Amino acid sequence: MSDQKSAAQPHSADVVVGARVRVRRDADDPAPGVVIEDFADLSQSEGLLGRDWAPVHRWAVALDDGRLVFVDDGELDLDAESPKAACG
């Protein structure tokens, strides 16, 4: 359950929809992308979906290589080298 609570708390106040981030699934080569959705409301409510398997990850990130990934706070960092993406 502690994973669910940590997923609901922001990694950084700057991690918002539209922010450029780097996803750290592969420690040797973080993948750059843009946050396109925040599922904090769903990640806080374990029983909301009527199941306890396949937990909701907080962030949906569109990677620059075309993939869509779903990650939690501990798997991403702000991309300080890129300007913030435009929201909308």
Rank of each mutant, 00 (worst) to 15 (best):
M1A: 14
D3Y: 11
D3Q: 12
Q4D: 04
Q4G: 03
Q4W: 07
K5Y: 07
S6E: 00
S6V: 01
S6I: 04
S6R: 02
S6P: 00
S6H: 01
A7E: 14
A8I: 01
A8T: 01
Q9A: 00
Q9E: 00
P10R: 13
P10E: 12
P10V: 08
H11C: 08
H11S: 11
H11L: 10
A13F: 05
A13P: 12
V15N: 01
V15M: 00
V16S: 04
V16A: 02
V17C: 01
V17I: 04
R20I: 07
R20N: 08
V21P: 13
V21G: 10
V21L: 08
V23A: 06
R24K: 09
R24W: 14
R25H: 05
R25S: 06
D26K: 07
D26T: 10
D29L: 07
D29G: 06
D29N: 13
D29I: 01
A31V: 12
P32G: 09
P32D: 08
P32R: 10
P32E: 11
G33D: 03
V34T: 13
V34Q: 13
V35W: 12
V35Y: 12
V35D: 13
I36D: 15
I36L: 14
E37L: 03
D38N: 14
D38R: 07
F39K: 02
F39D: 09
F39T: 00
F39E: 02
D41W: 10
L42H: 15
S43N: 14
S43T: 15
Q44H: 03
S45I: 04
S45L: 04
E46T: 15
G47H: 09
L49E: 02
G50C: 06
G50F: 12
D52W: 14
D52R: 15
D52T: 15
W53D: 13
A54L: 10
P55D: 10
P55A: 05
V56W: 07
V56F: 08
H57C: 09
H57A: 10
H57G: 05
R58A: 13
R58Q: 15
A60S: 15
A60L: 11
V61H: 12
A62C: 13
L63D: 08
L63G: 11
L63N: 10
D64F: 14
D64M: 10
D65P: 00
D65T: 00
G66R: 05
G66W: 13
L68Y: 12
L68A: 11
V69R: 06
V69G: 07
V69N: 06
D72K: 03
G74E: 06
G74D: 11
E75G: 01
E75T: 03
L76A: 04
L76E: 02
L76G: 04
D77R: 13
L78D: 04
D79Y: 02
A80Q: 01
A80M: 00
S82D: 14
S82Y: 07
K84H: 04
K84L: 01
K84Y: 03
A86P: 05
C87E: 07
C87D: 06
C87P: 00
C87T: 03
G88C: 08
G88P: 11
